[in-house]
Design a protein around this nucleic acid. Structure first.
Lengths: 213, 213
DNA sequence: GCAGGAACGAGAGCAGTGCTCACACAAGGG
DNA sequence: CCCTTGTGTGAGCACTGCTCTCGTTCCTGC
C-alpha cells in the first residue's frame, strides 16, 4: 500500500546509500553512477529519474556530509568548562574526519572538477562554525583587539553576539581546525608530526586561547 | 642533430606543457591523457612511452607544483624586518595559489582518487615550510613554551635551529597558512570574509606573532 | 659499414564511463 | 474506464585509460 511518493523516497534513499558506500570506498572523483545503479539493482539510465546528473548526486552527498560533521560537532558540545567544550568539539570534528575521509575530502578538499558548489550547500556548511562560535561567545573571555580595518573584513552579523572583535579570531580558529585536520588526512604531516593526538589537542587549546577561552 | 635522448626530453616536456595547460583548464580529475596527446599531436597510445600511466603524469605535475610554490615563497623572501619577510612569503604563497588554483588543489587539496602520493613528492613539499621556519629561527623572538608532551609530538631535527619550543608554533602557522589559502580558494569564505586581502594579512601577522615575530 | 636490436609512433581494440532517447508497462486521478 | 504521468529497460553515442601488435626509424656493437 505504499504510495508512489513513498516508493520514490525509498528508491532515492537506496541510491544515496549505495552512493555513500561507494564514496567511502573509492572516493568522490571515482564514484561511478553505473556502479551505484548496479548495486541498487537497476539499469544505469534509471538513476536519471532521481538525479539529473552525477553532479546532483554529489551535491546530495555533500549536504549529507556537512550535516553529518555538523551533527557530530553539536553532539560533542556537552556543557562544562568553555575550553573543554571547545576541545571536545575539535576532537569530534577530527574523529569524524578520520572515520569518513572521503566525505571529509568531498566537503573540505578541492572541489570536484567542473563542479561548482551550489548555494544549497551553504546553510549546512556553517553548522560547525556556529557551534564553535557560540562557545567563544558564551565564554566572553578577553580577545586581542583586531586592527580597525580587519573589523570590516568579515561580514557583519554572522551570528548574534559574534562581535567584530571576536569574529576574526573565531574565523582564524575555524580555519585552523580544518587546516589541521586536512593536513593530517591528506598526508602533509607524514614524517613530520608523529604524535598527532597530542599535537592536535595543543593546536585546539592554543586556538581556543586566541578566542578568549 | 638531436640525439635520441634530447628528442625524448623534448617530447616529455611537450607532454608536460600540454598537461599543465589542461590541468589549469579543467582540473586534475578531469585531466585526460587523450586530450593531452591530441594537443601534442600524437596518438593516445604513444604517451605511454613517456609516462607509464596517468598517475605518473600527475606525479610529475605534483612535483612541478611543489617546486613552483616553493620557488615563489623563496623569491618573496628578500630581507628586512622579520615580520615583513614573513608576511611577504605568506602573500607570495597566496598569490601563487590564486594564479594556479588547479595546481594548488593538486598538492594541497584532497588527494586524487586511487592515487597515493609517492615518496618522490616529499622533498619538494617542504620548501615553503623551510622558508617560513628559517625566518622564525633567525628572528629568534619569544615563543610561548609548549607543554612537555607537545615537544615530543613532532619529529626532532626537522630543520637545524628549529627548537622543540618553536616547532609546534611553526607547524601550526604553516597549517594556518595553507588552511586560509585553501578556504579562500575552495569557497569556504563565500559570503563570510569580504575583504580577503585584509583578513589574510591579519592572519599572517597573528600567526607570525605566535612564532616570535 | 652494416646487421641487429632498441626505441618509437600508429592504429585497432577492450572495458569502462556519463548521458540520451525511444520504448514498454504500471499506477492512479479525472 | 480511459489516459496521463511516473518509472524501468536497453540500445547507443562519445568519451576515457590502457594494452597489444605492427611497421619504421634510429643507434650501437661488431
Amino acid at each position: 500500500m505504499t504510495t508512489r511518493q513513498e516508493q520514490r523516497a525509498e528508491t532515492t534513499e537506496r541510491i544515496l546509500a549505495a552512493a555513500r558506500a561507494q564514496l567511502a570506498e573509492v572516493g568522490a572523483a571515482a564514484l561511478s553512477l553505473r556502479a551505484v545503479t548496479r548495486e541498487v539493482g537497476m539499469v544505469s539510465s534509471a538513476v536519471y529519474r532521481y538525479f539529473p546528473s552525477r553532479d546532483d548526486l554529489l551535491t546530495a552527498l555533500i549536504i549529507e556530509a556537512y550535516d553529518a560533521v555538523g551533527e557530530a560537532a553539536e553532539a560533542a558540545d556537552h556543557g562544562g568548562e568553555p575550553l573543554e567544550r571547545w576541545v571536545s568539539v575539535w576532537r569530534a570534528v577530527r574523529a569524524w574526519a578520520r572515520e569518513h575521509p572521503a566525505q571529509y575530502a568531498l566537503i573540505y578538499g578541492s572541489p570536484v572538477p567542473g563542479y561548482a558548489a551550489p548555494q544549497d550547500t551553504l546553510p549546512a556548511a556553517g553548522r560547525v562554525a556556529i557551534v564553535l562560535a557560540r562557545i567563544a561567545i558564551e565564554a566572553g573571555g578577553p580577545v586581542a583587539a583586531p586592527p580597525p580595518a580587519v573589523r570590516n573584513a568579515l561580514a557583519p552579523d554572522l551570528l548574534p553576539g559574534l562581535t567584530a572583535e571576536l569574529a576574526p579570531a573565531a574565523m582564524a580558529a575555524f580555519t585552523q581546525l580544518f587546516g589541521t585536520v586536512g593536513f593530517e588526512l591528506f598526508g602533509q604531516y607524514e614524517n613530520v608530526v608523529h604524535d598527532r593526538d597530542t599535537f592536535f589537542d595543543h593546536v585546539a587549546r592554543t586556538a581556543g586561547a586566541t578566542c578568549g577561552l
